[in-house]
Computed example of a mutant assay.
Amino acid sequence: MSELPATPPLMLDKIDRGILRLIAHDSTTPLAAIASEVGLSATPCWKRIKRMEEAGVITARVALLSPARLGYPVSVFASIETADHSEDWISRFAGVVAAMPEIVGAWRMSGDVDYLLHIMVPDIPAYDAFYRRLIAAIPLRNVSSRFAMERMKASPPPI
């Protein structure tokens, strides 16, 4: 999943941004409430939302879940270095990442680290088992893991 824009960003006005702020805060907000908040009637508001969905600005409407309440209180950020940058290795690595549900975020990086993985597990032994499966699945030069102590902020992009 690429976060980089393949096309120029959609031109958004103040009303579009207001709609996005409301949806990003709570995607279950009724259309009538969104429309009222941004000063539109329901139909024009709905048309703007559909336009932003079709343009790929709104990519999904999801519920945010509590990792701790679901039994995954440990967040690990693993920096990955590889000696192989071939298309075949990158494709294999992407498949490994996709197949491991503990990986909830993955980025290809610039600089001294090749990839950054966000991993959620129930405890340290579960991370050790994950780590062993990861290094058995694909050759890596170095894996450096950092354990999050506290999640201080999680928010949508600035709108």
Results as ranks from 00 to 15, higher is better:
Trp107Gln: 05
Thr7Asn: 11
Arg69Glu: 11
Thr59Gln: 13
Glu53Gln: 07
Lys153Asn: 10
Gly56Tyr: 09
Lys14Tyr: 07
Ser144Phe: 09
Tyr131His: 14
Asp112Lys: 07
Leu4Asn: 09
Val143Ile: 14
His85Ser: 11
Asn142Pro: 06
Arg17Ile: 04
Asn142Ala: 15
Ser110Asp: 10
Val74Trp: 09
Ile90Asn: 13
Gly39Asn: 08
Arg51Val: 03
Ala137Leu: 02
Leu40Cys: 02
Ala137Asp: 01
Asn142Tyr: 10
Glu3Pro: 06
Met149Glu: 11
Ser66Gly: 04
Pro158Trp: 06
Glu150Leu: 15
Phe130Glu: 01
Val104His: 03
Ile80Tyr: 03
Met1Asn: 13
Ala154Asn: 14
Asp114Glu: 01
Ser91Val: 02
Ala35Lys: 06
Ala126Trp: 09
Pro157Arg: 08
Ile103Arg: 00
Glu53Lys: 10
Glu102Cys: 04
Lys50Gly: 06
Ile124Pro: 08
Arg17Ser: 09
Asp26Met: 12
Ser36Met: 12
Arg69Val: 06
Leu65Pro: 07
Asp16His: 02
Asp16Ile: 01
Val104Met: 03
Arg48Gln: 05
Met100Gly: 01
Ile159Phe: 15
Leu70Met: 09
Met11Arg: 10
Leu12Val: 08
Ile49Asp: 00
Phe93Pro: 01
Pro67Phe: 00
Arg133Asp: 14
Asp128Gly: 15
Asp13Pro: 03
Lys50Phe: 12
Ala83Tyr: 13
Arg151Met: 13
Ile34Lys: 02
Pro30Met: 01
Val57Thr: 06
Arg92Phe: 03
Val143Tyr: 03
Leu116Asp: 07
Arg51Gln: 07
Ile119Lys: 01
Met1His: 15
Asp26Arg: 12
Met109Asn: 08
Ala106Arg: 03
Ala98Ser: 12
Ser86Trp: 00
Arg146Thr: 14
Asp88Leu: 12
Ile34His: 03
Leu20Cys: 03
Pro8Phe: 10
Gly71Tyr: 01
Asp128Cys: 11
Tyr131Ala: 08
Met100Asp: 04
Ser66Thr: 05
Val57Ile: 10
Ala148Asn: 05
Ala63Asp: 14
Val96Gln: 03
Ala94His: 08
Met100Leu: 14
Ser36His: 15
Pro157Ser: 11
Val143Gln: 04
Glu87Gly: 12
Leu22Ala: 02
Glu102Gly: 02
Ala55Tyr: 08
Met100His: 00
Tyr115Gln: 04
Pro44Ser: 09
Ala78Pro: 05
Leu31Glu: 04
Ile90Thr: 14
Phe77Val: 11
Tyr115Arg: 04
Lys153Val: 12
Arg48Tyr: 02
Ile34Gly: 03
Val143Pro: 01
Pro8Arg: 15
Arg132Ser: 15
Met152Val: 15
Asp123Asn: 12
Gly111Phe: 06
Val143Gly: 01
Thr28Val: 12
Val121Trp: 09
Tyr127Trp: 09
Glu102Gln: 06
Pro157Val: 15
Leu65Val: 14
Ser27Cys: 06
Arg146Gly: 14
Ala42Ile: 13
Ile34Pro: 01
Ala126Lys: 02
Ala129Asp: 06
Ala137Glu: 03
Ile49Asn: 02
Met100Trp: 02
Ile49Glu: 01
Ala24Lys: 04
Gly105Leu: 11
Ile15Cys: 05
Ser91Gly: 06
Leu12Tyr: 03
Asp84Leu: 08
